[in-house]
Amino acid sequence: MSSKDKGWKEIAPAGVSPKSSIGFMTGDWKTYMPVRDLEKCTTCLMCVLYCPEGAVRWRPEMGKIEFDYSFCKGCGICANECPTKAITMKLPEKEDE
């Protein structure tokens, strides 16, 4: 419980959820992250279709695939299912401390 949590007079009854989980980042769960080799990628979109999170997105206006690392849990399904083996799972490079 944090002090940011609201009191009983401030919240809607019956647990009607006031926030979308799009505001809840699950990206920090991962150990490995998918990294794509653009030369091998054929944009077949299997990574988009097989991601359990919806963290791999197709951007039709740009004609490209985007990985949303703020939700990616690093399961590796995209890398496993990629027919051209364009995706590899890698340890993220450590940020400078």
Binding site: S20, S21, I22, G23, F24, M25, T26, W29, K30, C44, L45, M46, V48, L49, Y50, C51, P52, E53, G54, A55, R57, W58, P60, D68, F71, K73, G74, C75, G76, I77
Partner: peptide
């Protein structure tokens, strides 16, 4: 695949299923 990739997710990201969850993927589809 393109049609489906362009559809918005009704089961939205940020859910707390385990990594690689089959049910979460199935229901997203």
């Amino acid at each position: 695949a393109k049609d489906i990739a362009e559809k918005p997710d009704i089961l939205m990201p940020g859910h707390r299923a385990c990594a690689g969850c089959g049910p979460a993927h199935a229901l997203r589809l």
